[in-house]
């Protein structure tokens, strides 16, 4: 299991995007609290809120009770929304109180990393579900049977574009032996950032198959390298790998060729690779070969090749096809 110290370092590196999400969560909770106070049946509660909203300058100058007669007229939300708003508020507060644990996912032995990440994101998705329910309740179109489940969990597949963009980073504790990260490709969208803290040995280029035009991919042994992922505007995946695994960073930028965006600091020799869990040595070697191919292919400037310039996406597709057993398909 990765040490607590390493986990702390990783969380520290991801603090920027994590706290941005936490702020949004707190702001949403705060906003629903204000809305609820404004909807309170208790006149004193409503007037106290109004008194605060008018600020110190109004003290002794504005009669709050009289002012409230007119302030209430601007209210659009029906009192019938209150139960849903309270439920949503509870969800937001609960998630907010979870703190850094909210973004930590532990993949139990025997479970896949995809399954773990999916469940973790669905838990985070409760915040988006709560926000959606708030809007539905305010609009008077909330139906508990239909919408209530969103507050219990909202799967990544159901997140919209804006929600995917504001996703917090997640830290996944996973056993290296059972790691098949290519299944994480389905989560690579918007601003999703996944960091794998790998326990025990793993395939040397385990993340290689996630390299794609707009996905940041990194294997490193240094937690502070994750600052780059934290600052990355889009989605990405990184792994803190054990000694012996490949060290590389793929940071795509515009139309840069794969190789120019890919920097390999270390790649182990093929000969040292042995079977690991369900992964044969050959499978692991293919990961390494793909990494090497991507790197090598693009290290040669495209315009210097004999053939006409090749689109990097086509290049990757061609490589994958060449490795696929077409007959079985």
């Amino acid at each position: 299991m990765p040490s607590d110290n390493l986990t702390d370092l990783v969380l520290a590196s991801l603090e920027g995007p994590r706290s941005a999400f936490a702020s949004s969560l707190a702001a949403a909770a705060e906003q629903v609290r204000g809305t609820l106070a404004g909807l309170s049946a208790d006149v004193d509660t409503r007037n106290n809120l109004l008194k605060t909203q008018l600020g110190g300058f109004a003290a002794g100058r504005i009669n709050i009770e009289k002012f409230s007669t007119f302030a209430d007229g601007q209210r659009s939300v029906n009192a019938g929304a209150v139960p849903t708003l309270k439920k949503a508020q509870a969800v937001l507060n609960e998630l907010s109180d979870t703190g850094k644990d909210l973004i930590q996912i532990k993949v139990a032995a025997g479970k896949t990393v995809r399954c773990g990440v999916s469940r973790g994101l669905a838990r985070i998705g409760r915040a988006f579900g709560a926000a959606r329910c708030i809007e539905l309740a305010k609009a008077g179109t909330y139906n508990d049977a239909e919408h209530g489940k969103m507050m219990e969990g909202l799967h990544f597949a159901d997140w919209n574009q804006a929600e995917r963009a504001m996703a917090p980073p997640v830290v996944v504790h996973v056993q290296g032996r059972s790691l098949h990260p290519s299944s994480l490709a389905e989560f690579m969208d918007g601003g999703v950032k996944i960091v794998l803290l790998i326990d025990g040995p793993c395939a040397p280029a385990t993340l290689a198959r996630l390299i794609s035009p707009n996905t940041f991919v990194m294997q490193t042994q240094v937690a502070t390298d994750l600052d780059r992922l934290a600052a990355w505007a889009g989605h990405g995946v990184a792994a803190i790998v054990p000694t012996g695994a490949a060290i590389f960073t793929y940071a795509p930028a515009g139309n840069t060729a794969f190789g120019n965006a890919l920097k390999i600091d270390f790649a182990p020799e093929d000969a040292s690779i042995s079977p690991l869990g369900s992964l044969s040595a050959q499978q692991q070697k293919e990961d390494l070969a793909m990494l090497s191919a991507l790197s090598g292919a693009a290290t040669t400037p495209l315009e210097a090749r004999d053939e006409s310039p090749v689109n990097p996406v086509d290049q990757l597709a061609a490589f994958l096809l060449s490795k696929a057993n077409i007959e079985e398909v």
Partner: peptide, 28 residues
């Protein structure tokens, strides 16, 4: 935090509501 009030509600408008539906007594 209540100084910030609440943001204007971005909600569907009840059908028939007019943009300047003045209350004849208050003008609001």
């Amino acid at each position: 935090p209540d100084w910030q009030g609440t943001q204007p509600e971005i909600l569907p408008v009840p059908k028939g509501t007019k943009a300047m539906q003045w209350d004849p007594e208050t003008g609001l």
